[in-house]
């Protein structure tokens, strides 16, 4: 499910610090943390440790992290903090995100509003494959979708979840699955577990 013929579907790779002179901000979705993952991140970011801030979002209180650590409770809290960074971002700064796609893209789109370029953002997927889905009919988003067909939170249509992805919205496209033959909805399967 992380690979697709659809070119808009983002690809992720293991995080590696780029040794630039700016501030390096790593934001990790805590409840996706697996054993050994933080140690791997600490190694990957050793080179910029002196300029590193790590935000742990919804992480267990015992979780350790490299750099200057800040603990946040929710992705919304992290998003607000990103948008109100003191003095804003600099051109040499880098943002690294690790977590589920809805988590990473919530923060990436907020960072974009704060002026950060996509070329300054790196992402590594971790945890569930759940998707945020944007309805092409009513333009509402439906969160935490794990099935190939989802009920739209806005208009209640049965949506076929596509691999087409919007970087602006941070969401996959959902289109009405029974538009041709109303009522003919295929079996739902949990494919984005």
């Amino acid at each position: 499910m992380m690979q697709s013929q659809i070119v808009s579907r983002p690809r992720y790779r293991d995080l590696a610090a780029e040794d630039t002179a700016g501030t390096h901000l790593l934001i990790v979705e805590g409840d996706t943390l697996a054993a050994g993952q933080m140690a791997a991140l600490a190694t990957a970011f050793a080179v910029v440790a002196a300029r590193l801030q790590t935000w742990l979002v919804s992480a267990p209180a015992t979780a350790l992290a490299p750099g200057r650590v800040r603990r946040l409770h929710t992705v919304e809290e992290a998003r607000t903090a990103l948008e109100h960074i003191e003095d804003g971002f600099g051109i040499a700064d880098r943002l690294y995100l690790q977590g589920t796609e809805p988590f990473m893209w919530s923060l990436a789109t907020a960072a974009g509003r704060a002026g950060l370029s996509p070329t300054q953002i790196r992402m590594q997927h971790a945890g569930s494959l759940k998707r945020r889905v944007w309805c092409t009919h009513c333009h509402q988003t439906t969160e935490n979708v794990t099935t190939n067909i989802a009920t739209c939170a806005g208009c209640a249509r049965a949506l076929l979840v596509r691999d087409h992805f919007s970087r602006r919205l941070g969401a996959f496209m959902g289109v009405m699955v029974d538009a041709e033959v109303p009522g003919e909805v295929p079996q739902r399967e949990e494919v984005f577990r």
Partner: peptide, 9 residues
């Protein structure tokens, strides 16, 4: 490049 500017900018 030394200062960490992304090449896209």
């Amino acid at each position: 490049a030394n200062a960490g500017w992304p090449a896209s900018h």
